[in-house]
Simulated scan of single mutants.
Amino acid sequence: MLLENAELVKRFFMNKWIFIMSIALVTSLYSCNNDTKLNGVIMVESEFQSDSDPDANGWTASFAEYRTTAVDSVLNLQAGVSRLPAPLDTTRYSLRMQSNNRSGNMFMFMKKRITGLRNNTDYQITFDVNLATQYPDAADVIGSPGSSVYLKAGASAEEPVRIAENGIYKVNIDKGTESAGGTQMVTLGNVANGGNTFVYRLISRSSPGNSLVVRTNDKGELWLCVGTDSKYEGLVNLYYDKIKATLNLAE
């Protein structure tokens, strides 16, 4: 009888040990998976596959750097998912942005919220952007729509929004001015198509390495922002084919 009880006690503690070790293993695996999510390289890639996507793959478009009294129809402000223009592959979709710069400056931008990052933590971010542009380096009578329109990309803990200040619509993040970048956006280059004629071509622009470090908010969020800062006083029409942001924990 004593042997039988001893055997029962032994089995009880053995089963309890197996249970505790199983819980510990599951917890360890969960921690590893969660750690990988937070610590690994995070890539946010956006391609605009259909014009039926109401939120353009999570991107929202806006415009700034013009007078609050200006009429949108005169500025010809347009944004939305559209097929790429000919002679490019017109079966592919893109995010199209257009404006007519009447005041000497125009900032066409889009933003996207990223979640699931570490709270109040610095991330190093690089960008790769493909877009369709028809503008050569050559200037017309009002300037050069290729070399006077600058592509920028960046991120911020707060949502980039348009605000009215002294009769001008501005953006609430530091994007810099014209060709110069700011603390929250870097300049990737201009939108010249690399040719001598007005024909749409796909171009690629990338951010300089290790150039942008941004701290998340207390919810582990960042807002990505991509746009063009223009001093060309005329109509500019661009098609964003692909946007990729790569995030690493800053050292």
Results as ranks from 00 to 15, higher is better:
residue 5 N to P: 00
residue 5 N to H: 09
residue 9 V to Q: 09
residue 10 K to D: 06
residue 10 K to A: 14
residue 11 R to M: 14
residue 12 F to V: 12
residue 14 M to P: 03
residue 15 N to S: 13
residue 16 K to H: 12
residue 17 W to P: 08
residue 17 W to Q: 15
residue 20 I to G: 04
residue 20 I to V: 15
residue 22 S to A: 15
residue 32 C to I: 12
residue 35 D to F: 13
residue 36 T to F: 10
residue 36 T to A: 12
residue 38 L to Q: 13
residue 39 N to S: 14
residue 39 N to K: 15
residue 40 G to D: 15
residue 41 V to F: 01
residue 47 E to Q: 12
residue 48 F to R: 01
residue 51 D to T: 14
residue 53 D to C: 04
residue 57 N to Q: 14
residue 57 N to M: 12
residue 59 W to V: 10
residue 73 S to H: 07
residue 77 L to D: 06
residue 77 L to H: 10
residue 79 A to F: 00
residue 83 R to H: 11
residue 90 T to R: 07
residue 93 Y to F: 13
residue 93 Y to I: 04
residue 97 M to A: 07
residue 100 N to S: 11
residue 102 R to E: 10
residue 109 F to N: 05
residue 111 K to W: 01
residue 111 K to C: 01
residue 114 I to S: 00
residue 115 T to F: 07
residue 115 T to P: 02
residue 121 T to N: 03
residue 122 D to A: 15
residue 128 D to V: 05
residue 130 N to P: 03
residue 132 A to T: 06
residue 137 D to H: 12
residue 138 A to W: 00
residue 138 A to V: 12
residue 141 V to H: 09
residue 144 S to C: 09
residue 145 P to N: 13
residue 148 S to C: 01
residue 150 Y to K: 12
residue 154 G to S: 08
residue 155 A to D: 02
residue 160 P to L: 04
residue 163 I to F: 07
residue 163 I to T: 15
residue 170 K to Y: 03
residue 171 V to N: 02
residue 173 I to T: 10
residue 173 I to F: 00
residue 175 K to S: 11
residue 179 S to V: 08
residue 180 A to I: 11
residue 182 G to Y: 00
residue 183 T to G: 11
residue 184 Q to C: 00
residue 187 T to H: 02
residue 189 G to M: 03
residue 189 G to H: 06
residue 192 A to G: 11
residue 192 A to T: 10
residue 195 G to Y: 06
residue 196 N to L: 12
residue 199 V to K: 09
residue 203 I to Q: 11
residue 204 S to D: 13
residue 206 S to T: 15
residue 211 S to E: 03
residue 214 V to C: 03
residue 222 L to I: 11
residue 223 W to V: 02
residue 226 V to I: 09
residue 229 D to K: 06
residue 237 N to Q: 09
residue 249 L to Y: 03
residue 250 A to L: 02
